[in-house]
Each structure stands twice: as C-alpha cells, then as structure tokens.
Amino acid sequence: MLKDSRNGYGLIAIVIHWVSAVLILFLFGLGIYMTGLSYYDDWYHKGPELHVSLGLVVLLIMLVRIVWRIINPTPVDLADKRVQNLAAKLVKLGLYAFIFIVLATGYLITTAEGQPASMFNLIKFPVLTELSSQNVDLAGTLHEYLAWGIVILVVLHAAGALLHHFILRDRTLVRMIKPVKKTDFL
C-alpha cells in the first residue's frame, strides 16, 4: 500500500525515508571529500555544484515528507516503555531540526554573494538575503557541526532500529522496510 496506517508505513513514506537517508549520507561524504580538494582538482568545482543540487533535492524531499506526515496517520509506537518512545521521538525531532538547519545554512552559503542556488541548472532558488563574510563563516561552521550532528543522530537512530529488531524483537525496523498491507487497515 502507498499510504501509512496506525500499524505501519506505506511505500511512499518508506521511499522518502530511504532516499533521504542515502542522499544525506552521500552529501556528508561529499562534503568531507570536498574539504580536501585543491583548486586544481577536477572536483573542485564539480563537487560543490553536485552538493548544492542534491542539497536542494533533499530540501524538496523533506518538504514532501512533512506534508506526507501531516496528511497521514503516524504508526503507533511499538516500545513498551515511555522512555524508549520519548528517546526515539527526540532523536527524530533532532534529525529533522539539524537537517533543516544544515539545508538553510547551505542555501545561505550558496546564495551569500547574490547568486541564486541552482538545482542541476534546471531550477533556480532565488536569493533571499546576502551575507557578510563573517556571517558566511558562521553559517559554514553551523553547516559543518550540525552535519556531524546528523551523522551522530543517524547512528543513534540506526542503533535504536537494530535494538528493536534484534533485542526487543518487535516490528519497528521491519515496518520501515516492508510497506503496510491492505489488511492492516481493517
């Protein structure tokens, strides 16, 4: 099924989740790789263009994700303990917050000199404000540290999913891999 239910996630939520995860982790790796490039490396200009384009794709996916979460029911928590459910919600909230802040700072860095952000030269995202060099540095620092924060939260998120699957033996991980069946709606 495409839609979510109280018992599990549908195909759309699952695809959004995994595509976001792969893109975000790729962007992190590309960002780390780019910091070691010299002016004469082939990827000195290609890397940032790809990084910005994929970052804008993630922004659009995250906006769709928020809308999808608003119009679909949230599956019920499977953990018996409230503290586990609270920890999962805090990690998820942290991921959302860090991702949006990293996207915003990336956008601000990209458009700091008055040029729009381009997604694969197909869509131009307009400049909302220009930044001073001091504010670009601040945005860059936030961008880097919160990107590392995303990786840390992803590790916690994955560890929690594996804990649920192998120790608690519930369906938390399975329902983010396998879409809910039509019979689960009844």
Rank of each mutant, 00 (worst) to 15 (best):
residue 8 G to A: 07
residue 49 E to H: 15
residue 11 L to R: 15
residue 81 K to N: 13
residue 27 L to E: 05
residue 184 D to R: 12
residue 103 L to E: 07
residue 172 T to E: 06
residue 154 V to S: 08
residue 118 S to R: 12
residue 93 L to N: 10
residue 11 L to T: 14
residue 12 I to P: 00
residue 109 I to C: 01
residue 50 L to D: 00
residue 29 G to H: 05
residue 13 A to R: 12
residue 2 L to N: 11
residue 141 T to V: 12
residue 149 G to A: 06
residue 169 R to C: 03
residue 152 I to V: 15
residue 112 A to L: 04
residue 7 N to S: 14
residue 184 D to A: 13
residue 139 A to Q: 02
residue 36 G to A: 02
residue 119 M to L: 13
residue 133 S to V: 15
residue 127 V to R: 05
residue 162 L to D: 00
residue 59 L to V: 08
residue 68 W to P: 01
residue 103 L to R: 04
residue 81 K to A: 13
residue 157 H to T: 08
residue 166 F to Y: 15
residue 40 Y to V: 10
residue 27 L to N: 11
residue 53 S to P: 07
residue 142 L to Y: 13
residue 167 I to Q: 09
residue 168 L to A: 09
residue 62 M to Q: 13
residue 184 D to G: 08
residue 116 P to L: 07
residue 126 P to C: 07
residue 125 F to V: 07
residue 143 H to T: 06
residue 175 R to M: 02
residue 54 L to I: 13
residue 60 L to S: 11
residue 101 I to M: 09
residue 118 S to F: 09
residue 39 Y to M: 12
residue 148 W to T: 01
residue 13 A to H: 08
residue 175 R to A: 03
residue 148 W to Y: 15
residue 175 R to H: 05
residue 133 S to E: 12
residue 165 H to Q: 10
residue 64 V to Q: 04
residue 130 E to Q: 15
residue 86 L to Y: 11
residue 168 L to C: 02
residue 136 V to F: 04
residue 183 T to S: 15
residue 13 A to E: 01
residue 183 T to H: 13
residue 38 S to T: 14
residue 37 L to N: 03
residue 150 I to G: 04
residue 70 I to H: 02
residue 78 L to A: 08
residue 95 L to H: 06
residue 27 L to T: 03
residue 34 M to T: 12
residue 150 I to L: 14
residue 176 M to Q: 08
residue 93 L to D: 00
residue 37 L to I: 10
residue 37 L to A: 02
residue 3 K to Y: 14
residue 173 L to D: 01
residue 177 I to N: 00
residue 176 M to N: 05
residue 150 I to A: 01
residue 77 D to Q: 14
residue 122 L to F: 11
residue 112 A to Q: 04
residue 2 L to A: 10
residue 124 K to T: 11
residue 70 I to V: 15
residue 103 L to F: 13
residue 89 K to L: 11
residue 145 Y to F: 13
residue 29 G to D: 04
residue 124 K to I: 05
residue 88 A to L: 09
residue 176 M to C: 03
residue 102 V to T: 09
residue 13 A to V: 11
residue 71 I to Y: 04
residue 118 S to M: 15
residue 155 V to E: 04
residue 104 A to K: 03
residue 131 L to Q: 02
residue 44 Y to P: 06
residue 54 L to A: 04
residue 143 H to K: 10
residue 165 H to V: 06
residue 133 S to I: 14
residue 186 L to C: 01
residue 156 L to F: 15
residue 2 L to H: 10
residue 136 V to N: 01
residue 153 L to V: 05
residue 57 V to Q: 06
residue 104 A to C: 07
residue 55 G to H: 00
residue 104 A to T: 10
residue 9 Y to P: 03
residue 34 M to K: 05
residue 115 Q to K: 15
residue 61 I to Y: 06
residue 98 F to I: 05
residue 106 G to W: 01
residue 69 R to A: 14
residue 95 L to E: 03
residue 82 R to W: 12
residue 48 P to R: 03
residue 124 K to N: 12
residue 34 M to Y: 09
residue 10 G to S: 04
residue 25 L to S: 05
